[in-house]
Simulated scan of single mutants.
Amino acid sequence: MRTWLLLLAALVPLAGCASPTRQQPRESAPSARPSPGHATVSGAAPSSPAAPSLVAAAPSATVLRYSFDSGITGPVLDGAGRLPLRVRRAGGQLSTVPHNGGLAVRFPQPCEHYGAESCARAILQSGPAEFLNPGQEAFSYGASVLVAPNETSKGANVLQKGFSVGDSQFKLQVDGAAGRPSCVIVGVGGSTIYVALASLSVADGRWHRIECSRSDALLTVAVDGQPRGRAAIPPSLSIVNADPLCIGGKGTSANNDQFAGAIDDVFITRAP
C-alpha cells in the first residue's frame, strides 16, 4: 500500500484542481434532491448509547495542516513544508484576517449571478499531491470556516481533491443558501456521490470547525466536535487520483464553486 508520507519529487502548479486539459465539471450541491447516483443521509447522530457505532472513528495522525499564519504573499506552507499552496486568480483577490491570534484567508465575496464569467474567482492550489490519496483507509479532513448569512451561494467548496465525474474525490463544501456543510466522497471507477449533509447551518457570522471522517462503511460530518450527519459507504470504496489539493474552489473557471467567507486551520489526517 502506498505510504501516506511519500514526498513528491516536484510540485508543478496547475491551472485548476486537475490537469489544464481537464474540464471542471459542475458538481451536485448536497442541498438538492439526491439523484439515483447519490447516497445522502443527513441529520444529527443519535445520542443513545449506540451512537458511537454510528459515527466514523476520528483518525488522529496529521498528514497536512495549514494555519496561514505566515500570510499568503508567497508559497503557503503546511506545518511540515511538504505541499506548498499558491494563489490562483481570475479577477478575484485573497486577503488575510485575524483569527485566534494568527491569520485566516478571506476569499472573494459572492457573485450576483453565480457562475458568470465576470465573477471574481481566487483559490489556493497545490501541485501534484498523490501522497494525500487515502485509498480504502480511514481518514479525516476539514477546516475552520467563517461564513456570514449573506455569503452563501449555490456552490462553495472549502477543500477538494479530485472530481466526482470520471475520477475519485474527497471534498468539504458549504453549498446552498442555507449554508449547511457537507462531506463528499466518490470512489475510483464509481458513479455514486456519497454525501454526509449536516443538520444545521454554519452561515451565522461565527467561526465553526467542520470535520469529515471516513471509516470502513461510514462518512460522518461533524460541526464543532459534534456529529451532525452521516452516510453509509461501501467498505471497498477507494479514493486515488493524480489531482492537486484546492482550497476555496475547484479551479478558476466560471463554474469553480467559489467559496466566500474565511477559512483557517485546514487539515488532513489518517489513522495511525
Rank of each mutant, 00 (worst) to 15 (best):
G79A: 15
G91W: 12
R106T: 08
P84L: 13
A61M: 10
P52S: 03
R106L: 07
P98D: 07
G74S: 14
P46W: 06
L77C: 01
S53D: 09
T96V: 15
S47N: 10
D69I: 01
R106C: 00
A57E: 11
H38T: 11
A51D: 03
V76F: 03
S95H: 00
S48G: 14
G102F: 04
Y66E: 07
V41Y: 02
P84R: 08
D78W: 09
G102C: 05
P59Y: 05
G102L: 02
L77R: 11
V97P: 06
S95K: 02
G102P: 07
V41C: 04
S67A: 15
P75E: 13
G92L: 04
D78Y: 07
G79Y: 10
V41H: 06
A58N: 04
A90M: 03
A57D: 08
S60K: 09
D69F: 01
Q93R: 13
Y66K: 02
R65K: 12
T62H: 06
N100S: 15
V87S: 07
A50V: 12
A50L: 12
A50R: 07
V63Y: 04
P59G: 07
T62Y: 09
L94V: 08
R82Q: 12
L64W: 01
S48F: 11
R65C: 09
R65M: 13
G79V: 14
A90F: 00
T40N: 05
I72D: 08
G71H: 06
A90L: 05
P98S: 10
A57T: 14
A57Q: 14
V97G: 02
L85H: 03
S42L: 03
G101C: 05
G91V: 11
G91D: 12
V41S: 12
G102K: 01
V63D: 05
L77T: 04
G71R: 00
G43T: 00
A57Y: 06
R86I: 15
S53K: 08
G37Y: 11
H38Q: 14
L83K: 05
D78C: 09
V87E: 04
T40Y: 08
L64M: 09
R86W: 13
P46F: 02
Y66A: 03
R86F: 12
P46N: 04
S53Y: 12
L54P: 00
H99E: 12
T40K: 14
T96C: 07
S42N: 06
I72P: 02
P98F: 04
P52L: 05
V63K: 00
A39M: 11
R82P: 05
F68K: 02
A51V: 06
A45T: 06
Q93N: 14
L77M: 14
H38W: 15
S67V: 08
V87R: 13
H38L: 00
A104L: 01
P52M: 06
H38N: 12
A56C: 03
A61Q: 13
F68C: 07
A61D: 08
F107L: 09
A56H: 05
S70A: 15
A56M: 02
T96A: 00
A45Y: 01
R65L: 11
L103M: 13
G37D: 12
G91T: 11
G101W: 00
A57V: 12
A44R: 08
S95N: 07
V63F: 00
S95F: 00
S67K: 10
N100V: 05
P46R: 08
R88S: 14
G43N: 04
A45C: 14
G71E: 08
N100C: 03
H99G: 00
